[in-house]
Write a protein that binds this DNA or RNA. Structure first.
Lengths: 150, 150
DNA sequence: TTCAATTGGTTGCATTTGCAACGAGAACGC
DNA sequence: GCGTTCTCGTTGCAAATGCAACCAATTGAA
């Protein structure tokens, strides 16, 4: 019972959800995203592509936790902005494989430093050890779900 | 440099953002939210109200990390569904103070168990200690921002 | 081979969202 | 007092989102 009373604001859903949007907002405000004509949604896709290119739209949808239709439209605008290209897969003609352009790759160096700086300030005063544990826990949950779902 | 390379998927922004949406989605799928005519956005507001009633729409916007216009519209539909009431503040007529109805309070017992169950399964196998640290870290970040911002 | 079931991508639709402009009320200055 | 500035809530608008329906390509089974 006492656990139930404490639940909401101490729950992992509550905390991850709000801190996630908090940090994302902060980064959007402080980076040049707007001037580049990009939004936070685009950045989410870019992060995935910076890790691995040549993936299908469906893969991006799963890892981004967004609908495939949403991803399709976001990629349309990213392609129009010359940041990604969608190349039809010769082996399976249903697929389109997504690659970054030069511009897309260079955005990494333009955007990441400010993002890191934001996180840096947000986590100031928190022991490095605790942070590491926190990230490991979240990573475990994320991977459990994204692996199951594919 | 090696830190920069590792950044994206190991970053606190990335992890909180995705795990947050992941868990919220999972809960939405598994609770009776849809049948009640509610969405995840409504649940976010309800969580705040379960903790404290009689707050202004502006307060809800800050803690929910949403635009005040968004909150205004969400509260309109919640009021239409007889879940909250918006009472004009006599002391400062600009404000409307938000309270739960009986229905709104009873929703807590209907929705929380499934949410807890979802988190339970998502965190299965993760040491209780690590989870506690993770939550404490996130809570510190959340409170730092929401306090500063108001 | 041929037909059913599945999968990937696109599109229409209704809802949600942030931003900006607006109006009402309050606080502060003069 | 009176006007300026600020805050709170509302609304219009464009963008983002999930869902469902759709088409094309692949897979699997009869």
């Amino acid at each position: 019972m006492s656990q139930a009373v404490e639940f909401p604001v101490n729950s992992l859903v509550f905390l991850t959800n709000r801190v996630g949007r908090l940090l994302a907002n902060e980064i959007r405000k402080r980076t040049a995203l707007d001037e580049l004509g990009l939004s936070a949604q685009h950045m989410g896709i870019l992060v995935d592509l910076w890790v691995k290119e040549g993936v299908r739209q469906q893969d991006l949808a799963v890892s981004n936790i967004k609908d495939k239709g949403t991803i399709a439209r976001a990629l349309q605008s990213l392609e129009a902005a010359n940041i990604v290209v969608r190349i039809p897969d010769q082996e399976d003609k249903r697929n389109k494989l997504i690659y970054l352009t030069h511009r897309g790759r260079s955005l990494r160096e333009e955007l990441l430093p400010e993002a890191q700086q934001t996180v840096q300030e947000a986590t100031e005063g928190i022991p490095e050890e605790d942070l590491a544990i926190c990230k490991r826990v979240l990573s475990q949950i994320y991977q459990k779900f994204t692996c199951n779902h594919k």
